[in-house]
Design a protein around this nucleic acid. Structure first.
Lengths: 303, 303
DNA sequence: ATTTGTAATGTAAACGTTTACATTTATCAA
DNA sequence: TTGATAAATGTAAACGTTTACATTACAAAT
């Protein structure tokens, strides 16, 4: 063994990553940034796991920022990560024209967008076919006789929800059911919003026979609202949600849902980021993953 | 306005955090480490949110590592964070004699332990009264007539589960029910373990009338096992879990649980870490938070 | 105008690496 | 043993800050 290497081992020398990162030009700093909208949403937790899985295998550390749908907070994390000289960044943009992310891309910092893309600039993206996913859910509901279907959505500044709304509309029009804008409710993407919106829906004069909820947390919130009013699912109302969870089967009743492959999305994003770091000028890539309709017990035919 | 400051503003100068951290001795690097066992567990997600909440308010960034109960991975994150010159670290030790964390404490790096303490060394800790929490759950079960209560636990190297077992035993002995070691099952702390252990329990000759599951994920896994065998809760078997979730009420049936204040725990830990950074030699603090018994519909008297 | 004090700016070294060469040491064939 | 080549080690500058002083500028007070 070499003398130097022997000493390295003997003294248990661990390089200081800060100094490495300060000096290094040829990216070997092994630090990735990951900026997500809501760590409470199990879908994003899956994404995180996917990213970490790939990162760990390739000796990267991951620095996570959770901005909780707060634009200022997102900006802060973007700034911090940039001034941390990260090798690259995986981020779910708060909206399609996110200037902060655009700037990073322009500065040639490797960026991969997840869950949502950017409209103003060409960038790597991994997402899901939201339009088709929503279409499948609504198509299912329509096929079993529902016509009055409420949509509990997140904010329409988030591209994801625009796409899901498009799927909702397309299904409706295929069945010749007119679109009623009073049936779509958009607010935040959290549990509380789901709860409050569902409460409002359930008190409507001519109550919808089915609910399509735009994400995990909205679904769970809506479920609480329905249960607290002792309305029976699916006898009195059907519900199907975007995002599946391992324990969807243990909900009351077992929940029908549009499954997104969160783990795969995270893993793929990390992989693409790695490629992008190695190869900064190759063509930007768009990956659209498929959703899967999980039919369980929360949707039933309208008699 | 000063000339220098004017230029700072004009050029939108952002200090390079890496250089700052490399040079700075009087800790103003504003970076915290957070190392958690399992980001899939909603309890730890709450902890993360609590930490981030405090950090954000005090302009700290948080670097999260999720080690998934893998000791090697925990070690890696500890090493990485240390060589990142972080100001301080919040960590849930993988077991009570965690050498990696002991070393950090000895090197005078500010450390706060969450959820679990360290036996060999004096360190700041925020945890919950696990013994009492488990006692309350078992006491409730015993008070409504159950005697044969299975305990789905995590690995007994994790201090938390040792304490929960102690509470289980104490309740039993207060009711004069002999402890039967064949009723405690310890494996990993994930969904799959809960599912598999519950399956085993349900096939037992003289099947327990109640299950106490050691955490969130174990509970959810057990629930799936029970449902897939079409065993009715609580008519045929009662179940109560450690850890509550916002949507526990929407489970089938609404789940009785021992609630831990995860958000508060995270926030308190961040606060204590901040104090520790400012004041490295003050007396180490132990904070024991209270649990709360949430009685819903998954436990019923034994007729 | 001169002094005095304070605020603002300037200067050089240091943090622990990487980078790019220069130099030394080891290895092998002739 | 010598020379050629490769491997190992040595050296100095640079990364962008902070730290600790030194210097300069600008008031207000004499």
């Amino acid at each position: 063994m070499l003398k130097v290497q022997a000493s390295i081992a003997a003294l248990e020398y661990k390089p200081n990553r800060v100094a490495q990162r300060l000096r290094s030009t040829t990216k070997k700093t092994k630090l990735l940034g990951l900026v997500i909208p809501d760590i409470q949403n199990p879908f994003f937790v899956d994404v995180v796991r996917g990213v970490e899985d790939y990162a760990y295998q390739n000796n990267f550390a991951v620095m996570i920022g959770n901005f909780g749908q707060d634009e200022k907070k997102e900006k802060l994390y973007l700034d911090i990560l940039q001034s941390e000289n990260i090798d690259g960044l995986i981020v779910a943009p708060i909206h399609g024209k996110d200037k902060g992310i655009e700037n990073l891309v322009k500065k040639n910092i490797p960026v991969v967008c997840i869950d949502r893309g950017l409209t103003e600039i060409d960038v790597d993206v991994v997402k899901v076919d939201n339009e088709q996913g929503a279409f499948n859910a609504i198509d299912h509901l329509l096929s079993i006789g529902h016509k009055k279907i409420a949509f509990i959505s997140g904010n329409f500044r988030i591209p994801t929800y625009i796409e899901r709304l498009a799927g909702y509309k397309r299904a409706l029009s295929e069945y010749g059911v007119p679109f009623d804008e009073n049936l779509v409710f958009a607010r935040d993407t959290d549990y509380k919003s789901g709860f409050e919106i569902a409460n409002k829906i359930l008190e409507l004069e001519d109550r919808p026979t089915a609910i399509f909820s735009g994400n995990n947390l909205l679904t769970l919130g809506a479920l609480e609202a329905i249960h607290s009013k002792h309305i029976r699912i699916p006898e009195e109302i059907s519900i199907i949600g975007f995002d599946d969870m391992p324990w969807s089967i243990s909900l009351n009743p077992p929940l029908s849902a549009v499954r997104q492959p969160g783990f795969d999305m995270g893993r793929k994003a990390a992989e693409m980021l790695y490629e992008r770091i190695l190869n900064p000028h190759s063509k930007k890539e768009k990956v659209i993953l498929k959703t899967e309709l999980m039919l369980r017990k929360s949707t039933a035919p309208l008699e």
